[in-house]
Computed example of a mutant assay.
Amino acid sequence: MKMTTLKMKKKLDELFQNDDWRISYQRDKDIYRIEWKETKEGVSIKLPNVIAKYEQRGEQAVEELHYHVTESLKMMKEKHELTGKEKHIFPVIRATSFPKKTKSGKKLLFTKHTAETNIYYALDLGNTYQLIDETMISEYNLDETRLKEIALFNIRSLKITPKKQRVADNDFYFISPQDGYDASRILNEVFLEEMRANAIGELVVAVPHQDVLIVADIQNETGYDIIAQMTMQFFAEGRVPITSLPFVYDNKKLEPVFILAKNKPKQ
């Protein structure tokens, strides 16, 4: 029997029963939302996408949706007290070839991210930012572990407004607010989990340069070819290049996608 919107809504109503959550449904937009009653932070789900995945993979698709939404809601509940300089500390993504020291020889603070990328940490100064080195940590009396946690928490506070394009039955989302932390939004797991929950196909993300994050819902083989060419082009044109390899996002992990682009994207 074909899954209808009403049947899927009832299924999700049962799945997301929680006294601390509020469930709502926008019928005109087919948007199903689960949010914390206290903060009103939550996750929005496109029901047609859920139904499409259900018809492809059955109950497994609904189980995966439940996992990604629940994980996203859990992360929203994490709280950190921010005081002074901590409010202005953000992560920045760089290529693994990026210098590990300043010109004066001070060691920059960084964390390994993927085989292609590292996470550096920056003190936001308004119109620019300063990468944090080891001497700054002691100078500002900051614990290194806590600093890293705060930076990842802060990146989630930045607005994400994707611009969507559909090409050859694949959906591409471009995040480029031009605030210096465009690519850093790849570290916003709440956002990625929500995108994964809504994706019909495989979720692929790319940070070709500092000033853009590309998220793609790849639904056919042509989509891989398009994201490969797109990432390479952005990488070549970027002011601060990061990596020309896109990543598959699944189970909170990023795995590089090695694609030999043979076909030009269809117009």
Rank of each mutant, 00 (worst) to 15 (best):
Q219I: 03
A261N: 04
S184V: 02
K7E: 12
Q60N: 12
A183H: 08
F98P: 14
Y67G: 05
V212P: 03
Q60E: 15
Q17D: 14
T5N: 13
D225Q: 15
K37T: 11
K29N: 06
K7Q: 12
L260A: 11
A122D: 14
D133W: 01
Y129S: 10
S24R: 10
I34S: 02
D169N: 13
P208D: 03
I137G: 00
D19A: 13
K103F: 10
N49A: 07
G58A: 12
S44L: 04
D133K: 01
V257E: 09
V190H: 05
T5C: 07
Q210D: 11
K262P: 00
M3F: 00
S138M: 04
I259V: 10
N154Y: 03
R156Q: 14
V207E: 01
I132P: 00
N188T: 04
E14A: 13
Y129A: 10
L131A: 02
S157I: 01
N263P: 03
Y32I: 10
N49M: 07
I23H: 06
F247P: 09
L147R: 09
E193N: 15
E237Y: 08
V207G: 00
E63I: 11
W21A: 11
D20M: 10
Y224S: 03
G180D: 07
Q219T: 03
R146C: 12
L245S: 09
Y173V: 06
L213W: 01
T145Y: 08
T83F: 09
Q267L: 12
E71G: 09
E55T: 11
V248P: 00
P256G: 05
E144H: 01
S44M: 14
G105E: 10
T128Y: 12
E35N: 10
K107P: 04
V92R: 12
K266F: 04
F98V: 06
M136K: 03
R196D: 03
K101V: 13
I160S: 13
N220C: 02
G126E: 12
Q229L: 12
F247N: 05
K159D: 05
E14T: 13
V62W: 09
P208F: 05
Y181S: 04
T114C: 03
Q229C: 02
L125G: 10
V257P: 00
N49Y: 11
R166A: 06
E64K: 14
E63L: 13
D179E: 07
N127H: 10
G105K: 10
S24M: 07
L73R: 09
S72L: 06
R196Q: 12
T111E: 15
H80E: 05
G42P: 07
V207M: 06
K106C: 05
G126C: 07
Y25Q: 07
K74L: 12
G223C: 02
Y249D: 07
P91Q: 08
K100A: 12
Y249P: 02
K112Y: 11
L125N: 15
E86P: 05
D30K: 15
I137T: 15
N198A: 04
Y140I: 08
K159F: 06
N49V: 04
T145E: 13
E86D: 06
N49D: 08
G223F: 00
Q233H: 08
H66F: 14
L254T: 02
G238A: 05
I31E: 07
F90Y: 15
K85A: 15
L131T: 06
G42E: 10
L192Y: 06
Q267N: 11
Y129Q: 07
K74H: 13
M75T: 01
